[in-house]
Design a protein around this nucleic acid. Structure first.
Lengths: 157, 157
DNA sequence: TGTGAAAAGACTGAAAG
DNA sequence: CTTTCAGTCTTTTCACA
């Protein structure tokens, strides 16, 4: 498996920092009973391995003017459209996630818009010109909760 | 609107830090041509206002053993189930997002599982006992991209 | 709100067990 | 893989504009 390089210390570090990217590494070190340099080097390693892909501040979308959150399922006309449509979606900043999916849809995306009218504008002016076969829209009117993946590493060695 | 307290400096700060929670505030200060203390106070203010809700490290799900990512639409039997089902979903760590939605479904959730079998186990053992009317599952077999909401504040005052 | 200064604390890399 | 150490940079607070 892809995560065979990770040990208990890595797991403990990830659990501590995954939900708080501003936690000082020295504090992590104290929690783990190792030196600060050890944490520094482990996090470096986790970053080099691609386990850690970056960090983010979590911003309340409604407080920066995005009242509408929607998911959309997209049907392509032909599978050949995958690369061009994905590239075009990347050019639309309001599209914040894009997945290739099995079953129902070909692509599944998440969009933030200022309001419902803005969402309609995005659909009409930016999505429809892409030449999709069909789309389906699902509007989230409240995010009940959102959190991180649970870190529970199996040591299969 | 909810974001009327935010000014140009707040916008600039948010744009700089939203995609890198480890950026030193002094570096933000230099980019913005203000003192470090000013950035410190602004970020404090943004946190107090709830604009900033926290920070996270972005971890590659496949590298910590979660190969399967799925979205599920849930139909309730009665609207009265909303609170209890939401609460029950919160007890399932693999459910990382939960939205109240209009139209098609009542609830819409995002799940990470170790593999497809594990996803089936979660559905059978944890979701079906909740007494839902029906569910629909959508499996993402590749996340083409994922990014942050664009920060573009209107100054309507 | 913003600033500068000062103390405390954190980061980072080198060298060594 | 871990530690200690040293130099440098950051965070945080506070008095003041």
């Amino acid at each position: 498996m892809a995560h065979h390089q990770l040990g208990e210390l890595d797991e403990k570090i990830l659990k501590l920092i995954i939900g708080n990217a501003r936690m000082p590494f020295l504090e992590v070190a104290r929690e783990c009973n190792v030196s600060g340099a050890a944490i520094h080097q482990r996090i470096q390693k986790l970053t080099n391995l691609g386990v850690i892909k970056g960090s983010e501040f979590i911003v309340d979308n409604t407080k920066v003017g995005y009242e509408t959150c929607a998911y959309m399922g997209l049907y392509l006309k032909t599978p050949g459209q995958f690369p061009s449509v994905t590239e075009a979606l990347k050019q639309i900043p309001e599209v914040v996630e894009c997945h290739y999916t099995t079953g129902q849809y070909d692509l599944f995306i998440k969009i933030y818009a200022k309001n419902n009218q803005h969402l309609l504008n995005i659909i009409h002016n930016k999505l429809q010109p892409l030449g999709l076969a069909r789309t389906e829209t699902l509007i989230s009117f409240k995010e009940a909760f959102k959190r991180q993946i649970p870190i529970e590493i199996d040591y299969e060695d």
